[in-house]
């Protein structure tokens, strides 16, 4: 049992570290969306009436990118505290396993009994860390769901953008490129966040 917990703790390190890595990629893509929005706004301004329907969409894309960046920034802070929690849990688990070894090895020693209090304390600390980790994972999964929601919204906007772009005459190609870029970015965000969720969901009910 102890060995399994140890292995699980080690896998947690990988899972939590992978979140930070995936999220940094999401951040890059969200910034790209923001840039695409600025570009689209400039094109829509030049296109004037021909891209009238496109103008509010650019504001919406920009807003969505900003919100995604803010959300990912806050999730990153959270992921960092989850990493610290994993370090603590690892330390507590190692200590608990060692203390168990001590109790076995000290059988018959005059003061063997005195190890019971540290052993019980180590077990409690380890269990508290494990519970806290599960709680934090659940919250992080909820936050990641919010990013997924943003990514889905971005894809809908991209579809609308394509329709609006088709009525923009000579600006069609430029605006379609913007729509493509938003769609691609939203796709990437969706995939990256989905990988985070899969990595973490292993620990939600473990």
């Amino acid at each position: 049992m102890s060995l399994n917990m140890n292995n699980q703790t080690k896998s947690q390190f990988v899972a939590v570290a992978s979140i930070t890595s995936e999220l940094s990629a999401v951040m890059v893509v969200a910034k790209e969306i923001s840039l695409a929005a600025a570009n689209a706004k400039a094109i829509a301004f030049r296109a004037g009436d021909k891209a009238k329907g496109f103008q509010p969409i650019t504001d919406f894309i920009n807003e969505l990118a900003k919100e995604t960046i803010e959300l990912v920034t806050s999730i990153n802070v959270y992921a960092l505290s989850l990493y610290q929690l994993t370090v603590n849990e690892y330390r507590k688990t190692v200590a608990y396993n060692k203390f168990e070894q001590v109790t076995k090895m000290s059988e018959g020693a005059a003061y063997a009994q005195s190890m019971q209090a540290p052993l019980a304390h180590a077990q409690l600390s380890m269990q508290l860390c494990q519970r806290q980790f599960k709680r934090d994972v659940k919250q992080l999964l909820d936050q990641l769901e919010a990013v997924m929601h943003h990514a889905r919204a971005a894809r809908v906007i991209a579809a609308n953008s394509r329709i609006e772009a088709s009525q923009a005459g000579e600006y069609l190609q430029s605006l379609q490129a913007v729509a493509e870029s938003v769609d691609k970015a939203a796709h990437t965000i969706h995939d990256n966040v989905q990988r985070c969720r899969i990595a973490l969901s292993l620990y939600r009910n473990s």
Binding site: K98, V102, M105, A110, Q113
Partner: peptide
Amino acid sequence: LFAPMMAAVLHHAPVE
């Protein structure tokens, strides 16, 4: 060495 060391010390002194 922690576990064997602590186990050995418990022959001479309680943890506290």
